[in-house]
């Protein structure tokens, strides 16, 4: 068995039939994820912000939307959009845009929740301080609350982006030739390369997701400038347990309760 021969379709996995035909493969997954995040971000912010409104006629529709989408599998949304959107719009929509639309609907709801959590996480005193200097609610939001909220949201956003990237594989069901679909096509066309195809799919997703999460970790470190105290990269389980802390210097006092000695007992 020639190992290199097994992976001879590598270009198809990465780019689809790009130079001759449409973009596909892993590149299409990345394009889908980036496009979706760019478009749905604004809806997410708007939805999350509106959900915090005290006016019921704004709050309730947003809540209904968010809760409905969050309680629906992504694949359902993809089917709905694929079948209903052309019917409602009256025109044909390409599979690609149908995929983008459904991913946006899905992503907006999740991002709305991230935004809401971020805004709530900003201490209440910040809003009071801003209001008491005579800023309007809108200005206080824009200059004081949101800049802080976005910093809080960054880790959640990045981890959502990773999971969204992985979720783009679901749109293979409507025939978008992204990495999953490319692998399935290869494995059906050339059954002797089936194992290689599934290995390629797995590796493709892993490499991109892992790179994003590594990037995310670095970004988190840089963004948390104003909150150095709560940034603890070396946090370990012991810190969260109600055990007496081991003295770093000086003689041993009391029984050693660290987890290592407890385990070895």
């Amino acid at each position: 068995m020639d190992l290199l021969e097994q992976f001879s379709n590598i270009k198809f996995y990465l780019l689809g039939s790009y130079p001759q035909g449409e973009i596909g493969g892993l590149l299409l997954n990345i394009i889908l994820a980036v496009l979706t995040i760019c478009l749905s971000f604004w809806f997410g912010v708007l939805l999350g912000y509106s959900r915090l409104s005290c006016r019921l006629y704004i709050k309730l529709p947003c809540m209904a939307y968010i809760e409905t989408v969050r309680a629906t599998p992504l694949i359902m949304i993809i089917f709905w959009i694929y079948f209903f959107l052309p019917y409602i719009a009256g025109t044909n929509i390409t599979v690609f845009w149908s995929a983008v639309a459904s991913l946006c609907i899905y992503a907006a709801a999740y991002q709305a929740e991230i935004v809401r959590a971020g805004i709530i996480a900003v201490p209440k005193g910040q809003l009071e301080a801003a209001l008491s200097t005579g800023m309007s609610r809108y200005r206080a939001m824009r200059h004081v609350i949101l800049p802080q909220a976005f910093r809080i949201m960054v880790p959640s956003f990045l981890s959502f982006f990773v999971s969204l990237f992985k979720d783009t594989s679901t749109v293979f069901i409507i025939g978008v030739i992204e990495l999953t679909q490319a692998g399935i096509i290869i494995s059906q066309r050339e059954p002797n390369k089936m194992y290689a195809a599934y290995v390629c799919m797995g590796l493709g997703f892993w490499i991109v997701s892992f790179s994003i999460s590594q990037l995310a970790r670095r970004l988190e470190k840089r963004i948390g400038i104003f909150d150095l105290e709560s940034y603890r990269p070396d946090a370990c389980r012991d810190e969260f347990m109600l055990l007496p802390k081991k003295k770093v210097t000086g003689e041993e006092t009391g029984p050693d309760m660290s987890c290592r000695s407890a385990d070895s007992r």
Binding site: P123, G125, A129
Partner: peptide
């Protein structure tokens, strides 16, 4: 207004 916990904008 001056608050007990200062409420400076940390960013």
């Amino acid at each position: 207004m001056v608050f007990q916990h200062f409420n400076l904008y940390p960013h």
